[in-house]
Design a protein around this nucleic acid. Sequence first.
RNA 1: GGCCCUAUCGUCUAACGGUUAGGACAUCGCCUUUUCAAGGCGGUAAUCAGAGUUCGAUUCUCUGUAGGGUCACCA
Length: 472
Amino acid sequence: MESKKIVTRFAPSPTGFMHVGGVRTALYAYLWAKKNKGAFILRIEDTDKEREVEGSIEHIIKSLKWLGINWDEGPDIGGQNAPYLQSQRLDSYKKYAQILIDKGLAYPDPYTEEEVGVFRDTAELAKKPFLYREHRPETFGVWDGTKPLRFKVSEIKSYKWHDLVYGDLSAGPEALDDFILIKSDGYPTYNFAHIIDDLEMGVTHIMRGQEFISSTPKFLSIYDALDIKPPLFATLPPIMGKDGKKKLGKRDGAKDVLDYKSEGYLPEAMINFLALLGWNPGDEREIFTMDELVEAFDISRIGHSGAQWNDLKFDWMNKEHIKKLSFEKLKKNIFEYLPENLKIEKIIPLIAERISKWSDVKEIVEKGDLDFFFKQPEYQKEKLVYKDIPLEKISENIKKAVSELNNLEENNFNQENIKKVLMQIADKLDNRGELLHPIRYALSGLDKSPDPFIIAEILGKNETLSRLQKAV
RNA sequence: GGCCCUAUCGUCUAACGGUUAGGACAUCGCCUUUUCAAGGCGGUAAUCAGAGUUCGAUUCUCUGUAGGGUCACCA
């Protein structure tokens, strides 16, 4: 028997930027589709013209592309189920709405918005859930499109259903109501539109946030009314904000994922981190490429409880991914943040192992910690002292080093040879630091710096000797 | 308030009745060492509470507690 092709989708509304929560939902849907050699669809749920934000679609597309989450069908590339903008699919919603009307399962809402608002307020005051169906009119008029079209829920019952992540779920009859299918502006609500789209697009698995658990009975009642089989639900646990209490959301200061891009995080680190926030491979691996995630991903290992975003661990993970980068990539990214006089290939590794994200390069530069590469450092002579060795002795050591280093040919002046020469002298002292510390300091003028050998190589023979001579 | 979901180190998590409760980040210490960084080794640190089921509960059940979600002409 041929198994049905797995189809997943990510269906954001164009109300602004994407934050990490949305990205993770997209990622899981993408991973599941790819793992099963299925299709991943990008659909834009633009049915709320009030909240729509200009440019959102482009922003969403840009975000997903940056992350390497690529869709097989979508508004920009089309596909067999086009169009992928809900605002262009109104005919479909009308068609299915008409089916419900014909079945006597949909009717025009006779009330004004204000009147419904009063019902709601009354319910809230009485500390009861608001149920429109308790105010359902006795008789229905004909829907002319000027009023909202509501679904007439026929069987008030508790629903039970199976979720791929949470297992068996249920909800009380309070979760069922005569919700709006088509708004008075002619656009469908999410509750209705996504069902029709998923049906028409052949979506088999719905990845979604757990805020949708409580509205699932509404969806199920529509599936029942339309006599169609619902797709499989995979509900994702929430991502919490830094306080660990609230679900991360735009109102709570969730960041645009593209902000992470401009802060110098790698997309592969973002993907890796998000994948592991609420899912684990079952073994102790933590660093993954996208391909490895596709391979390892499994819905059954998605967790149930909310996870807190953790900047510190994200920084660590980004660093891990930086370590995996080729020299060329390191160079390209690091050079972007370096001033012209510091675009020296040899300092790339020195910087790379000291940063966790690209913008750290900028910080290092601004702090002036790299200035010594092109500028004579200024420092106080006492700083050359190691432990309590007198300055005269230190100077003597440096002089010796200068004369030995001077014997090195210009083109042999590399860190290996420099190290050999200096160590020979240093090893004869009580403490290597008596020589190595002052040399490092004379070259860099910094309390913290890379080792003196590499610095000397980068500075070159002339500059190195000149700085050392100045120190004695 | 109704309905629903969740609960293991500070954080992310593993352990699908029997483990000295494992790993990672963070933290602390040690090693390496000329200072950082990197690396290596090690330490501190958790099963929300109370009943029950069981020879045996992190694991199953119930209650409580805490947190979260939801009850829109938003998705």
